[in-house]
Write a protein that binds this DNA or RNA. Structure first.
Lengths: 152, 152
DNA sequence: CGATATCCGACGAAATCACTCGGATATCGA
DNA sequence: TCGATATCCGAGTGATTTCGTCGGATATCG
């Protein structure tokens, strides 16, 4: 019962992009260095983020990736769905109707409600948080009272 | 992001034990047949349930397993912790303090709060449901709308 | 005694995870 | 135009986890 490193690294990648938001594209090499993550692996993850429309890329020198929206407008549910696929604690309780394989026990299954409730708890939590909630304030904002609240 | 078959099969096993609650031990062979699950595999899972104090076993002929408590007194959080280990969507957000490996990023990590909230959403959902909520009422219980026969 | 169970450890195939590698393509500054 | 810098893309790989199976020891009941 845990997210993989795709979710972990991908979220950290997105936080870095949020910190650079508005200052042009940031390269994977730079982010990999800042977060101490394998660059070639991030390359794989960012494909999913791009296909989900969360980031856009600029090729060539001084290229890189940037968010397509302000961090406050990007719910974490969208980020994790892009990285890890549909949120489904069990195959019979996916939030993607396409991947919800109807199990042959459905008629007499009394357990499904458990997985559905767990799924809804996860998705509503992820929907209630945005990238901005995970992004530390810029370096100069030492007297920001909410900054201390986030970093606790 | 999903529970394994340990969680799935184990919960279904527990539901069967709940249905048999109060009528003496139920054998794994019988439950495996009822749920169409591999008996030898259930044998492995039930070890964890026994060690967690959720079931007791009776050896020998006419032996089997039975719940140690009424289904209504068994929260699903306890069942899934026994089957899947500590609930932790990320290694740095385990509900078992012993397994909560302090990550070296903890001082500057802004992402941890996300995993903690997801974890709390899962655990509180699992704590709010008991085995009785997943156990269909017995066939002859038409005059027991509250399911009191199983839940207490 | 023999049928029925739990108990216990070991083994193994298959899938998934967490990457790495090599090269093709695009863009910029000099 | 050249070369440095990046993204893009598919393939491959070793380690780990998952999902079981198997064989046998032990306990209990009739």
């Amino acid at each position: 019962m845990s997210f993989s490193t795709k979710g972990e690294y991908g979220v950290r990648l997105m936080v870095q992009l949020a910190r650079h938001y508005g200052t042009g594209p940031a390269s994977l090499a730079g982010i990999a260095a800042e977060e101490d993550l394998p660059r070639a692996y991030l390359e794989q993850l960012v494909v999913n983020l791009r296909e989900a429309g969360l980031v856009v890329s600029t090729r060539g020198a001084h290229g890189g990736y940037e968010l397509t929206r302000a961090p406050g407008l990007i719910p974490m549910s969208e980020v994790l769905r892009a990285l890890e696929g549909p949120i489904a604690p069990m195959f019979c309780a996916s939030d993607d109707p396409e991947h919800a394989t109807t199990c042959d026990r459905s008629s007499r299954c009394t357990v499904n409600v458990l997985w559905v409730r767990v799924r809804d708890a996860i998705t509503s939590t992820l929907e209630s948080m945005t990238l901005a909630d995970l992004t530390p304030p810029p370096v100069g904002a030492l007297d920001d009272p909410q900054g201390a609240l986030i970093s606790q």
